[in-house]
Amino acid sequence: MECMYYEKKENNMVKCHLCPHNCTIQDGNIGICKARKNINGTLISLNYGKITSYAYDPIEKKPLYHFYPGSNILSIGSFGCNLACDFCQNWEIAHEDSLTMEIEDDDIILLGKSRGSIGIAYTYNEPSISYEYVYHMAKLAKREGLKNVLVTNGYINEEPLKQLLPHIDGMNIDLKSIEDDYYKRICKGSLKPVQRTIELASKSTHVEITTLIVEGENSSEDEIDKLAQWIGSIDKATPLHLSKYFPAYKMKLPETTYDTLVRAKEIAKKYLDYVYIGNVWGIDNNTYCPNCTNQLINRYDRGEVKGIKDNRCVKCGEKINILY
Rank of each mutant, 00 (worst) to 15 (best):
Lys9Met: 15
Asn12His: 06
Lys15Leu: 05
Cys16Asn: 05
Leu18Thr: 03
Pro20Gln: 04
Thr24Lys: 12
Asp27Trp: 06
Ile30Gln: 10
Cys33Ala: 08
Ala35Ile: 04
Arg36Asn: 11
Ile39Thr: 14
Ile51Tyr: 13
Ala55Lys: 10
Lys62Glu: 14
Phe67Met: 03
Phe67His: 13
Ser71Thr: 12
Asn72Ile: 01
Ile73Thr: 08
Ser75Ala: 15
Ala84Leu: 08
Cys85His: 11
Asn90Asp: 09
Trp91Cys: 09
Trp91Glu: 07
Ile93Ala: 02
His95Lys: 07
Glu96Trp: 07
Ser98Ile: 10
Ile103Glu: 12
Asp107Met: 05
Lys113Ser: 11
Lys113Asn: 11
Gly116Glu: 03
Gly119Ser: 07
Ile129Met: 10
Ser130His: 14
Ser130Tyr: 10
Tyr133Gln: 05
Met137Thr: 06
Leu140Arg: 10
Glu144Ser: 09
Leu146Ser: 03
Thr152Ala: 12
Ile156Gly: 00
Ile156Glu: 00
Leu161Ile: 01
Gln163Asn: 10
Ile168Val: 14
Ile178Pro: 11
Asp181Glu: 14
Ile186Lys: 15
Cys187Met: 12
Lys188Ala: 12
Val194Ser: 07
Arg196Lys: 15
Thr205Cys: 00
Glu223Lys: 13
Glu223Leu: 06
Asp225Phe: 04
Lys226Asn: 14
Gln229Pro: 02
Ile231Met: 11
Gly232Met: 12
Lys236Asn: 15
Pro239Arg: 06
Leu242Ala: 05
Ser243Ala: 09
Ser243Ile: 07
Lys250Ile: 10
Met251Ala: 10
Met251Arg: 13
Lys252Gln: 08
Glu255His: 06
Thr257Arg: 07
Tyr258Ile: 10
Asp259Asn: 12
Lys265Ile: 02
Glu266Trp: 01
Lys270Cys: 03
Leu272Ala: 11
Leu272Asn: 14
Asp273Gln: 13
Asp273Glu: 13
Tyr276Asn: 06
Ile277Gly: 07
Val280Thr: 09
Gly282Thr: 04
Cys292Phe: 10
Asp301Gly: 00
Lys306Leu: 14
Cys313Tyr: 04
Cys313Thr: 04
Cys313Asn: 08
Lys315Ala: 14
Cys316Asn: 11
Gly317Asn: 09
Gly317Lys: 08
